[in-house]
Write a protein that binds this DNA or RNA. Structure first.
Lengths: 227, 227
DNA sequence: GTTTTCATGTAACCCGTTACATGATTCA
DNA sequence: TGAATCATGTAACGGGTTACATGAAAAC
């Protein structure tokens, strides 16, 4: 039981589904791998892991022995407590994955859902994307309305702030439109077998129904935590 | 004393500087007038007002008597407790206005500052804009770096999320560039007299150094709270 | 006269951070 | 050997929401 935070729980289960990890590494992956994600502090993460264990969704395993130089170099450092997803945990995550609803369209929640679209059924992806879009569209309505009512009372800076805010939302709507269209066009379902964790064998780009975008990123390995 | 929340305190003082108001209306203005702002709940707002009063920055006044039909129709409904900025409150707000620092570049904080740029000295505006920009630029660095390190391990959706996130940040940087340039170009200081509250007499657009943007908004008055 | 909107408040809770305490491992 | 990084945790606090309680004025 114990209704834990949704978003963090979801992300943790999702990451552990791909491979077992210890807390420290988990936290890093929450910043980096999952794009937009802000870094949760250990003060949040570890207690969360504890309750997930208590729920039977994870089990703690002793980390790889530090003497094992091979394992250490391969896995990148040694570990103390490795968390592994249980069968119930997997099941629970599947449930979360298939769930759609108003909360799902919210900013952070949406980002989390999107980050695991690779494991999500096509149908569900569509519902989430469309839900998010209509969420933003109603937001735009409100903004436009209130702007129309108050525009002459506001000074230029406030107006400019509002303008930029609306433009940002409009931009995301366009993005969603692209995504939805690609989803419709793409005939690949992915993840027809629910027991199969993500395979990262996409050696060449463009697996399925995602829009094409220019791509430039020079190599520049540096520190962690986007903050 | 009592270090209250910064952002809400700041916004409340700023709004009350323009004109006295009661809590209920204040809350509405926090959504609408201040563009991007999320709506604080009453459970946050009223206690905050209390502490501001305790600090001597506000005083409570009895609202306009409901019998006065004229005042009621003009001011839009009656009021119970009207909050007015004291001299110390005004002074305190000036201090907050002139303050720049790392916290100032943070997302929400920045929006709040920007919303009151109309009352902010040119110099300070510049520092805030430039601080925000470099904040975003370092964020971009981190994102690029981590992306370069992990790109082949990530699936298409995660990659797309990251791409979109970065593009959003890049977009804001361009926006800031425009603003900074306009600030440099504009020779108008505004608010050279610190005792003078905002005048909303800008009947014709384009007061000073703000960039021009297309402007279309049909009339469509409806409900409040953007949420 | 009843419903809606205006208006003010409080107590319980939730989600998360900060600061702190602790210790093992790697690297210079 | 000492510093940096890896790694795990906890207690105190912070800033906010929800749900609730209350009531007055406006609109129908």
């Amino acid at each position: 039981m114990s209704r834990r935070s949704g978003i963090l729980e979801f992300a943790v289960l999702g990451l552990l589904r791909e491979s077992p990890m210890h807390g420290y590494e988990l936290r890093k992956r929450l910043n980096t791998s999952l794009g937009i994600f802000r870094a949760f502090s250990y003060g949040t993460l570890y207690p969360c892991l504890k309750t997930l264990v208590a729920n039977g969704w994870l089990i703690e395993e002793p980390g790889s022995a530090p003497e094992d130089a091979l394992a250490a170099s391969l896995a990148g450092r040694r570990a103390k407590i490795v968390y592994r997803l249980t069968a119930e945990g997997k099941e629970h995550f599947e449930e979360l994955l298939s769930h759609t609803g108003p909360d799902t369209w919210e900013d952070e929640h949406f980002a989390a859902r999107f980050a695991f679209f690779g494991q999500t059924e096509r149908e569900v992806r569509m519902r989430v994307l469309e839900g998010r879009r209509s969420r933003l569209e109603e937001r735009l309505e409100k903004m436009r309305a209130s702007l129309a009512r108050t525009r002459e009372r506001l000074d230029d800076y406030t107006l400019e702030l509002q303008r930029h805010g609306m433009e940002s939302v409009e931009r995301e709507v366009r993005w969603l439109n692209e995504l939805i269209e690609s989803e419709r066009a793409g005939r690949d379902q992915r993840r027809s077998d629910p027991g199969d964790p993500a395979r990262h064998d996409t050696t060449s780009g463009e697996t399925d129904g995602l829009p094409r975008h220019r791509d430039d990123t020079g190599p520049d390995p540096s520190d962690d935590t986007v903050k």
